[in-house]
């Protein structure tokens, strides 16, 4: 039983939970979005700095369970340097692969909260911004 637990709360999850990557706020984000997981009260805000059609910087802030917060931290690492268009097409499966721990359906909601915030934000952008005028 305990080996399955160690699977979920693997070192890389606890690392990101205890020492998150880019937790905080951007001074002038291109876009920001917040969502909550009403089941367990996870809260998450994601802020992106977008230029040249790419995410230059990503920061998150929030509170909640280790899975949701670690996932947001890992997502910030993942999106930086990537094209907005590529991220728009990122499947949920890829986020779960990044997490790389076995999650039950209810815990997947935690693991995918940041991903959901990202997708909602990117879809609500009218068009890929920051295609600089030629």
């Amino acid at each position: 039983m305990s080996d399955r637990l160690d699977d979920i709360y693997d070192d890389h999850i606890l690392d990101h939970f205890e020492s998150p990557y880019h937790k905080g706020h951007l001074p002038c984000p291109s876009c920001a979005h917040s969502e909550r997981n009403p089941i367990c009260g996870d809260q998450l805000t994601l802020e992106l700095q977008i230029a040249d059609g790419k995410v230059q910087q990503a920061f998150f802030d929030g509170k909640g369970c280790a899975i949701s917060q670690a996932a947001a931290s890992m997502l910030c690492e993942h999106v930086e340097g990537r094209a907005v268009e590529e991220l728009r097409n990122m499947p949920a499966k890829q986020m779960l692969d990044i997490l790389n721990v076995p999650l039950t359906p209810s815990r997947q909601k935690c693991g995918l909260l940041g991903f959901k915030v990202l997708k909602t934000m990117l879809y609500s952008l009218d068009e890929p911004p920051a295609e600089p005028a030629k």
Binding site: M1, S2, R4, L5, I8, Y9, C40, G41, D42, G64, C65, A66, I67, T104, R107, C110
Partner: peptide
């Protein structure tokens, strides 16, 4: 966090 504790107890 409570949700993590709940998961851990569930798995036990």
């Amino acid at each position: 966090p409570a949700h993590d504790l709940g998961t851990s107890l569930a798995q036990r």
